[in-house]
């Protein structure tokens, strides 16, 4: 089976800024593939090239085995794209926006209603509301419906959940899972690491380069060193104490706990615990922990910067 998306040595620069530096990867048919990276990593440029809206400087890019330059018309009919900025008509109602997108793709809402039904039932109470007056989560669900109405084979979603609350994000991802089960390949970017865990595979992107590609289950293997979780009631003091400790390579807050990575080759976290306890943190809780996607990404980021 041909891949849904195939990218080989893709490069793109804007004046002196190298937005994409010879990147290569493939997305399989029916795969949910995540692009994880901060603002400015080059994700939106990649989306614009894949959706035939921007030309690459060099490299081969194919979508459903069609060339993004020569076959751009055909590609546009067979993909769905949700850009990073909300780009529906704010002064049209929910129903009018959907109707409009169905019409320009030469279809009707009824024809592909099955695909959007689960999403659309949540929007139905607001059918007559102008799109500009919807809440953030609802806007994104409408945009997803509009991107799906012509039954695309590949779906491109550029940060669909940025600024969306955790409950709506969860619902949005449940919808993506269902679409994937329908056989649609999905390329989705996100700054949220918890969403990465829901993808089949993820690529970590930084400054136009792919740092790593793996499944969420195996990406923690990319982490080097021993990681200790610690907490106390004096978190800020604990953070500064750990950062200044000779055994600690880096220390960051991770929700309820701090995560301290030990210096390369040092596995003796118990003596760090003793030491910190002796510095007056009587209520210290400490245990060795395994790295998550965010730990891996942060380690790769700091290696790339160094």
């Amino acid at each position: 089976m041909k891949p849904a998306i195939s990218i080989q040595n893709l490069s793109k620069s804007y004046k002196e800024v190298e937005a994409l530096k010879s990147i290569s990867f493939e997305v399989k048919q029916g795969e949910l593939f995540g692009l994880i990276g901060p603002d400015g990593a080059g994700k939106s440029t990649l989306f614009r090239i894949l959706t035939t809206l921007t030309l690459a400087d060099s490299g081969i890019v194919r979508v459903m085995d069609m060339d993004v330059v020569q076959d751009f018309r055909e590609i546009r009919n067979r993909i769905g794209y949700m850009p990073g900025r909300f780009s529906l008509y704010q002064d049209l109602t929910v129903a009018e926006n959907l109707e409009f997108f169905a019409t320009i793709f030469g279809t009707t809402i009824e024809e592909n209603y099955d695909l959007i039904r689960d999403i659309y039932v949540q929007l139905e109470p607001f059918k007559t509301r102008p799109a500009g007056k919807l809440s953030g989560g609802m806007k994104q669900k409408l945009a997803l419906c509009c991107a799906l109405i012509h039954k695309p084979e590949v779906l491109f979603l550029d940060e669909p959940t940025t600024g969306v609350d955790p409950v709506s994000r969860k619902e949005f991802w449940q919808m993506l899972k269902r679409l994937k089960n329908e056989g649609i390949a999905i390329l989705v970017s996100t700054p949220y690491m918890d969403e990465a865990a829901l993808c089949d595979r993820i690529a970590l992107v930084q400054k136009g380069e792919i740092l790593s590609i793996a499944s969420p289950d195996t990406i923690n293997e990319a982490f080097h060193g021993t990681l200790v979780a610690m907490k106390s009631h004096r978190m800020y003091e604990l953070l500064t104490t750990l950062r200044n400790h000779p055994k600690v390579a880096s220390c960051y807050a991770f929700g309820e706990f701090l995560n301290a990575a030990l210096m390369d080759g040092d596995e003796d976290w118990q003596s760090l615990e003793m030491d910190i306890r002796h510095k007056g943190f009587d209520d210290l809780v400490a245990y060795e922990t395994t790295a998550g996607i965010e730990n891996v990404f942060m380690q790769l980021l700091s290696q790339a910067e160094a």
Partner: peptide, 24 residues
């Protein structure tokens, strides 16, 4: 108001360092 939307995980934590310091 949502000071850390869209920034990378390290910058997000550096931002919280600023918040901690200010509160301190």
């Amino acid at each position: 108001d949502e000071p850390t939307g869209g920034v990378d995980p390290i910058t997000r934590r550096q931002f919280w360092d600023l918040i901690y310091e200010a509160a301190y």
